[in-house]
Design a protein around this nucleic acid. Structure first.
Lengths: 239, 239
DNA sequence: CGGGAGGTTGACAATCGTCAATCAGAGTGG
DNA sequence: CCACTCTGATTGACGATTGTCAACCTCCCG
């Protein structure tokens, strides 16, 4: 988490130390367990220490929409906690550990140390930028493009976080979860993914991972422009 | 704007004064003019003083997605300015005035005065919450529900801002713009709106405004739950 | 009075969803 | 080791929502 916050706003040594000195409690969650549910009251900001998690919302007809996917090191529940009552659920995709930091301690730190505060605020902003891209993804792109876009985003974020390679990575999502993230049905996701495979863009011979044949080609199919991730210039250039 | 920031985080008199003392430059924009375009570098946070504006993104096939709609008093370009390079465009829906505050002055104030900082941060968070709801709206609801939801959100936000009534308001959007906000086509928006009219849910006898017959019924059709707007308890209760 | 933007409508096509059946693989208990 | 079960992937047939194309209409404004 410190590494991630340090990404845009350079943190001084004592800022890092203060972050690490925050009180916290660690909890382990099983796959598919909820860290928090819509409408609950949130008192803690949660940092994902291992595993993957999603944030999601339910709609009236019973279907759900995944609004973001998170990997280790990311802050998954700052938004709910600062707004007090949760407008979305946070659920584990795989088992993993979560550090829970009391809300007030984090807020105090944010304003005692402007650099930390600015880093947290920036993190919130980038979250919002990704939400905007997802609105466009779900609203204006066809199934093939949507899924390719999602795969590109995930591959790049994993690479930046030092968890995977751009050419392939472990994908902890079922096709139904991909459907919930892209606003499609699992059946259609299945067909679309098979189409991407047939065209040699991806390889799913191992059903729990993704191999990307030609990243640039997939990015083109997925109308993927990494600008919205607001990467640092050096990493932007390395894509 | 001060009024809006004061909404959740109670500002002291000197906090308000400091906000009002921020340097700014006022610009007037005509209808459809751009305040900022995707990929531009943003140096100013913009506050909408009058009129309406949208934020939007373009996708590869040439269509665009509106990701949010803004009314007077709202901060429309804080996100682009803090992230430096714009990931989306800001465009006027009607002519109006915009106050441009130098980014660094606003950031300095945010950390000099924690209360102001917390208010700005909260504003960012609520923006993000609305984005999440829009992802769900566009991803998982059918056309009728989507449009009804949009109309409900707009009506409520106008009411809270003291600009309109819940039962009816001026709607500065063409059907094509509604289409871009809901991920539909203007033709389908037209048909869907006519359907809502036929069922007596809304009245568009004046094409530039919306009259809502039965708010609760429209909210039900639109699967609208105001939780994601994070209203204050008193106003939440008054719905 | 002409031009243009936006609204309305119809016919038809395409994408995507629904329903349902089958299959493959992992874990479990006997 | 072998049923048994459960979850998730796969496939086909069919249907529904939504998009496309194109025409026409209605204002509003210079």
């Amino acid at each position: 988490m410190v590494r991630k916050l340090d990404y845009h706003i350079r943190l001084a040594e004592d800022d890092r130390a203060a972050l690490l000195a925050l009180p916290f409690r660690i909890r382990t969650y099983e796959r598919y367990h909820f860290v928090i549910r819509e409408r609950d009251v949130a008192n803690h900001a949660c940092v994902l220490l291992s595993g993957f998690a999603v944030r999601s919302k339910m709609v009236a007809n019973g279907s759900r929409q995944i609004v973001s996917i998170h990997m280790k090191g990311e802050i998954i529940d700052l938004q709910n906690s600062l707004l007090n009552v949760a407008d979305h659920s946070v659920q584990m995709l795989s088992s993993g550990r979560v550090a829970m930091i009391p809300r007030e301690d984090l807020i105090r730190l944010a304003f005692e140390r402007p650099t930390v505060g600015r880093a947290l605020w920036t993190d919130t902003m980038i979250d919002a930028s990704i939400f905007r891209e997802w609105i466009a993804n779900v609203g204006r792109r066809d199934a093939r493009t949507r899924i390719a876009h999602l795969l590109c985003e995930f591959s790049l974020r994993l690479k930046i976080a030092g968890i995977g390679e751009a050419t392939g990575y472990e994908l902890p999502m079922t096709q139904e979860q991909i459907a919930d993230a892209t606003g499609l049905t699992s059946v259609h996701v299945n067909r679309t993914i098979r189409g991407l495979e047939k065209d040699g863009l991806i390889d799913r011979s191992n059903p729990r991972s993704i191999l990307i044949g030609d990243w640039r080609k997939l990015a083109e199919v997925g109308d993927f422009d990494s600008g919205y991730l607001h990467l640092r210039d050096d990493e932007q250039a390395a894509i």
